[in-house]
Amino acid sequence: MYSNAYIFRYASIMVILVAAILSSAAMLLKPMQQRNEAVDKMQSILAAAGIPDVSAGDAIKLFNQNVTNMIVIDNKGNIIDDFTAEGKQDSKAFKINPKDELYKKSQGKDFELAMYVINLNGEKIYIIPLRGVGLWGPVWGNIALKDDFNTVVGVTFGHKSETPGLGAEIETPIFEDQFPGKTLFDETGKFKSVRVMKGGVANLSAADQFHAVDAITGGTITSNGVSDMLQNVLESYVPYFKKQV
């Protein structure tokens, strides 16, 4: 039989050893993991602007070639940082975490937002990072707008753990391809966002069809999450849009 003292000693030494192993593994691998996350973010941004299937090896190069400005704006629509040099992955705009900023927004505090400008075939495209909640966990994405700050060029979505075959369909082309051509504002200049709605966009009036896409059958809560995410994030940029046009 083992004494209680032995068991305590055994457990303590084991825990300390394991802690040391795990923290050194985490520290050793951290730089590579952060690089992978940055590359993944760049691929997603480029895909939203219409440069899909960028390989992980080319992402940093292509990102720096195509992106001209990395902008940070405050919640009143003023530009507070505009980064144009090489090494855009180190700019302030790239490091802003939309989750933290949207939390500040929900608390009624001042917050900062990121925006990326891509020059594609002579046209300026503005890309906005999105962040919201789905059914099981966070959903995120990027939305690309034309320089009228109204027309959608493209979107990409991602999610942590939405239901495969149902909510997880938000990251498929079938869903994402509905967005290009939609508009954020109606003719009177009122902010409408793009809603993900049940019941069929085809049944809406011609004017409303520009502000809605079809939801996913069986993925109602994820669809609503995407809809709320678009509304919540894009409305924060409205002061900036108004100053531009």
Partner: peptide
């Protein structure tokens, strides 16, 4: 504890080398 340690290390390695 042994299993959990190994799994966490595997998870970290995957995140570093085969992110997708």
């Amino acid at each position: 504890v042994v299993i959990a340690t190994l799994v966490i290390v595997v998870d970290q390695v995957l995140k570093a080398y085969v992110y997708d």
